[in-house]
């Protein structure tokens, strides 16, 4: 960062100070004065979808936002891999400098302790199982597709660190790219059923809060995920609808995205 030395550096520090002071003073002024606005309406309706309000916020009310945020993760991974050489293009008609190619990391697994050597694989398998549990219980707990994806790719990285390149859960690059594409593509296409039946993209036809989805669609996307809440006042039913499916798609996307970054940095990227 030679550009930030000297006068430019001083200017950058002053700018950051101004930004920091402005931001902090705003927070102090806002304390106790925040208007609840739309959150009051969201909270009053959330119980109609899933017991977990956060899941409803993230994947229903703001589900299209979350799709784009999911795409950010996907794009981040694709761009990271491009930085180290995947998919770099050149003009056929005009020879340029050869594109950068990254070399694989060098692994030295001989120094691993016996405990780590023998407990690493069970730990990775346990992490995988935990990831599955997190994604399948996403409508009723604080977990979700993103957490599942992060946990599973942590297992993938753990296995690579413990056992080197020939570890037992070595995903191929086609598998990783495919699972990421299936995840983001699946999440995007989950908007179609609502679009085709109600005209609203990604309307949660399984939960059907506003009663505008055909009953057959409500049955197909709602019944498999139906939840009952047993209270002393009685038993209450609701369905998160397409939220569990979105969570699975999100998990696939995150596994593909973070897995691609790990893969590219561990194994390098050499074009065939």
């Amino acid at each position: 960062m030679n550009e930030l030395r000297g006068k430019r550096g001083i200017l950058a520090v002053i700018a950051l100070l101004i930004i920091g002071i402005g931001f902090l003073s705003s927070l102090f002024e806002l304390a106790g004065n925040v208007r609840p606005g739309v959150s009051q309406i969201y909270n009053s309706l959330a119980h109609l979808v899933a017991p977990n309000n956060i899941a409803t916020w993230v994947y229903d009310w703001r589900g299209y936002d979350t799709l784009l945020e999911t795409a950010v993760i996907y794009v981040g991974a694709v761009v990271s891999a491009m930085v180290i050489g995947r998919g770099v293009v050149q003009m056929k008609s005009c020879p340029q400098e050869p594109p950068a190619q990254s070399k694989p990391l060098e692994f030295h697994i001989e120094t691993l302790t016996v405990i780590l050597k023998y407990l690493g694989l069970p730990a990775a398998i346990l992490l995988f199982s935990y990831g599955i549990m997190v994604v399948t219980a996403s409508s009723t707990s604080g977990g979700g597709g993103f957490q599942c994806g992060v946990i599973m790719t942590a297992a993938y990285l753990l296995a690579a660190i413990f056992y080197g390149k020939n570890n037992p859960i070595r995903f191929g690059k086609r598998f990783i790219i495919g699972i990421g594409a299936a995840g983001l593509g699946g999440y995007t296409l989950l908007g179609l059923p609502g679009f085709l039946t109600t005209g609203f993209w990604q309307y949660n036809i399984g939960a059907d809060v506003w009663g505008i989805a055909p009953s057959i669609m409500r049955f197909i996307f709602g019944e498999p995920f139906r939840l009952s809440l047993v209270l002393k006042e009685g038993v209450f039913f609701s369905s998160p609808g397409i939220i569990p499916l979105i969570n699975v798609a999100e998990a696939f996307n995150v596994i593909g995205a973070i897995g691609l970054i790990y893969f590219a940095f561990i194994y390098g990227w050499q074009e065939e």
């Binding site: 936002d65 784009l68 945020e69 795409a71 950010v72 794009v75 981040g76 694709v78 761009v79 491009m82 930085v83 998919g87 770099v88 293009v89 050149q90 340029q96 400098e97 594109p99 950068a100």
Partner: peptide, 20 residues
């Protein structure tokens, strides 16, 4: 989000050109 992803994509398009 659109500005955020837009910035990231700009990086991807430029990196794809492959020169230093």
């Amino acid at each position: 989000i659109a500005v955020e992803i837009g910035s990231l994509i700009v990086v991807g398009v430029v990196v794809g050109s492959g020169t230093s």
